[in-house]
Design a protein around this nucleic acid. Structure first.
Lengths: 139, 139
DNA sequence: CAGTATCCAGCTAGATACTG
DNA sequence: CAGTATCTAGCTGGATACTG
């Protein structure tokens, strides 16, 4: 065999990739933020239903309404993963029917600061992006 | 018909959802950052191949190596969208074979600051997340 | 109200082959 | 070197129905 096959080279690349991941912790959080509902839930819990207030606990149905368009499945899945990661707390009040509140933890709040930063950047620069897009498409 | 069907309620929700999107500009950037390769490319161009230096122009193959594991297709697609959005510049040097450099624009650099913030947050808090995860799984 | 369970359509992204 | 083109497997996430 004179040289590596394409498949072998790919396998090799995967190993290097894993190493790159291990060396760059940002990747792990990235996978979290890459889930669009995660970011939206954090934004909702951190900024309130109107996307402009302060942090506030919200009920399941309240979140579902605020993020209208999210399926129950995705909302549940997202909230579970956030709870598991210690970013939100889940509080069950045994009324009939049951009432459940979700709230950002301190850790979640610190992440919210980043999300807020992203939002601010978007508001400041999104028109630049739109303009660049128009120029690119026109040319 | 006494009440709305489930399908009608869903259609209604979609409209509200669109309104929510329009009211919250963060969503547009979110879609951008939700693409994991976008964030990684910005990080690579902004922090250098070793993920620790300063902003530096990089060649196509250099990016492919740094983000080992990315397919040519995804890398090309990602770079095109970033170019279209005015976040990176594409410079072709007519050597044989051709040489292409990618570099962050000022706009791209300002976005990189956010990515850097995310990275720093990850380094500061990722162990908390891991601990929370272990506690959740153990209980 | 706040889920869980199941099914499946659609899109994403990987593999592969070819080009200037 | 830096792409483009094509095919397709697999996974994501939506729709729907059911439960404590």
């Amino acid at each position: 065999m004179p040289t590596m096959t394409a498949a072998q080279q790919r396998a090799e690349a995967k190993v290097q990739y894993d190493a790159f991941l291990a060396a760059c912790p940002s990747r792990q959080l990235l996978d979290r933020l890459s889930d669009k509902w995660v970011t939206l839930v954090v934004a909702a819990l951190g900024s309130g239903p109107d996307c402009a207030g302060g942090p506030a606990p919200m009920r399941f149905s309240e979140l579902a309404r605020t993020l209208a368009g999210v399926s129950q499945k995705m909302l549940t899945q997202t909230l579970r993963s956030l709870e598991r990661d210690g970013l939100v707390t889940r509080t069950v009040t045994p009324t009939v029917p049951v009432t459940v509140h979700y709230e950002l933890t301190d850790l979640g709040l610190s992440l919210h600061a980043l999300v807020r930063g992203i939002k601010d950047w978007a508001q400041d620069h999104m028109d630049d992006v739109v303009a660049a897009r128009a120029a690119y498409d026109g040319a």
